[in-house]
C-alpha cells in the first residue's frame, strides 16, 4: 500500500511538472523539420566526392549512422520496455553472417538481403526472448551476456562459416571514389528507418504497453496487457533492426568474423549510447551515437591504445550513470530546457 501511495504521489508530481513544461513550451512543438533537414544534407553529402576525396567523412557518417540504428533499436527493448540487454550484438552477428554467407557463397547483394537478414535476426530474437524474458532485472542481463558467450563459442568453432577466421567477402567492383556509396545510403536509410520506427512504436498502443510494463510488469499485466507477447515482440523488433545493420556492415567491411560482431564492447556501446543520449527518448540514442563516435575518434587519435579506449569508455559510462542517469535529452527535458530542435518525441 505504501509503495502504491508513493507511486501515486510521484505520478501526480510528474504530471504536474509535465503539464508545466507543456504550458511553457506551448509554441515549441516537435521540430520535425530539423531531422529532415539533416537527412537531406546527408543525402546530398556524397556530391562532395566530385570535388575531392571525402571517403573518410563518408566513412564517419556511415559509422555514425550504423551506431544510430544500433542504439535506436536497442532503445526499443532497453529504453521502452526496460529490459537491459548486454547481448544485443548477437543479432548484429546473426544479420551479418546470414547476409555475408549468401554474399560469399551465392554472390547475392548484402544490401538487398538486409531486410531478410533482419527477419532472420528477429526470428532468433523471438525464440531467445521466449526463454530469457521469463526473468527480469539482473537475471535477464546475465542471460544476455551468456548469450554472447554461447554465440561466440558456436561461431568460433563452426567450420561452415569459417570458424574464428571468418569469411572474406568479394569486394565491390565500384571505383574507390564511389565504392562507399551503396553502403552509405543503405546505412543512412536503415538508421532513418529505425529512428522513424522507434518513434512510431513509442507513440503506438504497443509502445504505451511497453512503457507500462517497464514501470511495473505486474500492474501492466493486471491492466490487461499481454506482457509476455509485448516484451517478446519488442525483443524481436529490436533484433530486426540490429540484424539489418549487421548485414550491411559485414559486406561493407568485406569480411565477417566473430571478433567483429561478438565482442562485449559492441554491446557496451549500444547501452552507452542510449544512456548518454537518454534512454527511452527518440533523439537520445541519435545524440548518443554521434557523441560516442566522436569520443572514439578522439580517443583513438590521441591515445591510440585500445586499453585506454576501454578505460575511457568505462569512465564516461560510469560518469553518465552516476550524474546524468537520464542522459542528455532526458535531463534537459526534465528541466524543461530541451532545445526545440532535439524534441523529436
Amino acid at each position: 500500500m505504501s509503495d502504491a501511495m508513493q507511486e501515486t504521489g510521484a505520478v501526480l508530481e510528474a504530471r504536474k511538472a509535465y503539464n508545466e513544461t507543456l504550458r511553457i513550451k506551448a509554441d515549441q512543438t516537435r521540430a520535425t523539420w530539423f531531422p529532415i533537414t539533416i537527412m537531406i544534407l546527408l543525402i546530398a553529402l556524397p556530391l562532395l566526392q566530385f570535388t575531392g576525396n571525402y571517403n573518410y567523412l563518408l566513412h564517419m557518417v556511415l559509422l555514425t549512422a550504423s551506431y544510430v540504428a544500433l542504439a535506436s533499436s536497442w532503445n526499443i527493448l532497453g529504453g521502452f520496455a526496460g529490459y537491459i540487454s548486454l547481448g544485443h550484438n548477437v543479432f548484429f552477428c546473426i544479420g551479418g553472417y546470414f547476409a555475408g554467407m549468401l554474399v560469399a557463397r551465392y554472390g547475392w547483394s548484402g544490401i538487398a538481403l538486409a531486410p531478410l537478414a533482419g527477419l532472420v535476426a528477429a526470428l532468433f530474437g523471438y525464440v531467445i526472448g521466449l526463454i530469457t524474458l521469463r526473468v527480469r532485472g539482473p537475471s535477464f542481463i546475465i542471460s544476455s551476456i551468456a548469450l554472447v558467450m554461447i554465440a561466440r563459442l558456436l561461431f568460433d568453432h563452426w567450420k561452415f562459416v569459417g570458424g574464428a577466421n571468418g569469411v572474406t567477402l568479394p569486394p565491390t567492383e565500384l571505383s574507390v571514389q564511389w565504392a562507399k556509396l551503396p553502403y552509405y545510403y543503405a546505412m543512412l536509410f536503415i538508421a532513418a528507418f529505425t529512428v522513424w520506427c522507434s518513434y512510431k512504436i513509442k507513440h503506438s498502443k504497443f509502445g504505451l504497453g511497453l512503457r507500462a510494463l517497464s514501470k511495473d510488469e505486474i500492474k501492466a499485466e493486471a491492466a490487461g496487457i499481454d506482457t509476455r507477447f509485448y516484451k517478446v515482440t519488442a525483443f524481436a523488433l529490436s533484433a530486426f533492426f540490429v540484424g539489418m545493420v549487421g548485414a550491411v556492415w559485414g559486406e561493407y567491411l568485406t569480411y565477417i568474423r566473430p571478433s567483429i560482431f561478438l565482442v562485449i564492447l559492441i554491446a557496451a556501446y549500444m547501452v552507452l549510447m542510449c544512456i548518454l543520449g537518454g534512454k527511452g527518448t527518440i533523439a537520445g540514442p541519435v545524440i548518443g551515437a554521434i557523441l560516442l563516435t566522436a569520443f572514439n575518434e578522439f580517443f583513438v587519435a590521441t591515445m591510440g591504445a585500445s586499453e585506454l579506449n576501454i578505460l575511457g569508455t568505462g569512465v564516461i559510462m560510469a560518469v553518465c550513470l552516476m550524474f546524468f542517469p537520464h542522459g542528455i535529452v532526458g535531463s534537459l527535458a526534465r528541466k524543461g530546457r530541451l532545445p526545440r530542435i532535439l524534441n523529436w518525441d
Binding site: G137, I141, E307, N309, L311, T313, G314, A318, L321
Partner: peptide, 25 residues
C-alpha cells in the same frame, strides 16, 4: 531508485571496463 538494479549493473559493467583498461594499460 526504481531502476537501482539496472543502473548498478550497468555501473559495474563500466567499472569492469575501467579495471580492464587500467590493467591492460
Amino acid at each position: 531508485s526504481a531502476t537501482y538494479s539496472e543502473m548498478t549493473v550497468l555501473l559495474t559493467f563500466a567499472i569492469a571496463m575501467i579495471v580492464e583498461g587500467a590493467l591492460g594499460a
